Simulated scan of single mutants.
Amino acid sequence: MHALKFEEALAQLEQIVERMEGGRLPLDESLAAYRRGSELLKLCHQQLSDAERQIQILDNGSLRDFSVSGSEAR
């Protein structure tokens, strides 16, 4: 099984939330969905942390606020 990309994991997480919010899942399916959602959330957080570390490395160890001025956006 391949590692999920961030976008794939987030899409699956959104589907789980929609199913759970519908309130029609049996208890055992709700527990399984919650467990899977927790795994996906952890994966997303890890991938975001990894991306932040890569940005810090590329930006000489500091993570700066990103802002786009009118002249830079063109």
Rank of each mutant, 00 (worst) to 15 (best):
M1T: 09
H2W: 02
H2Y: 06
A3R: 14
A3M: 09
K5F: 01
K5N: 13
K5E: 08
K5Y: 03
F6T: 12
F6M: 01
F6H: 14
E7V: 09
E8D: 13
E8F: 01
E8A: 03
E8N: 01
E8H: 04
Q12F: 15
L13S: 10
E14D: 08
E14I: 09
I16M: 02
V17H: 12
E18C: 05
M20Q: 15
M20F: 03
E21S: 14
E21R: 14
E21D: 13
G22W: 06
R24F: 01
P26Q: 12
P26A: 06
L27Q: 13
L27W: 00
L27M: 07
D28S: 05
E29P: 02
S30E: 10
S30Y: 00
L31D: 04
L31G: 02
A32M: 08
A32R: 02
A33S: 15
A33E: 14
Y34I: 02
Y34Q: 13
R36L: 12
G37P: 01
G37I: 01
G37L: 06
G37A: 05
G37N: 03
S38K: 13
S38C: 02
S38E: 12
E39H: 08
E39T: 05
E39K: 05
L40H: 08
L43S: 05
C44K: 06
Q46E: 15
Q46C: 07
Q47K: 15
S49G: 05
A51Y: 11
E52W: 03
R53S: 11
Q54D: 12
I55S: 08
I55G: 04
Q56S: 06
Q56W: 00
Q56T: 02
I57R: 14
I57A: 14
L58V: 06
L58K: 12
D59P: 00
N60W: 04
N60P: 00
G61F: 07
G61A: 09
G61I: 10
S62D: 06
D65N: 05
D65M: 08
F66Y: 12
S67P: 03
S67N: 09
V68N: 04
V68E: 13
G70P: 09
G70N: 11
G70K: 10
S71F: 04
E72R: 12
E72K: 05
A73T: 09
A73N: 14
R74G: 11
R74T: 04
R74F: 11
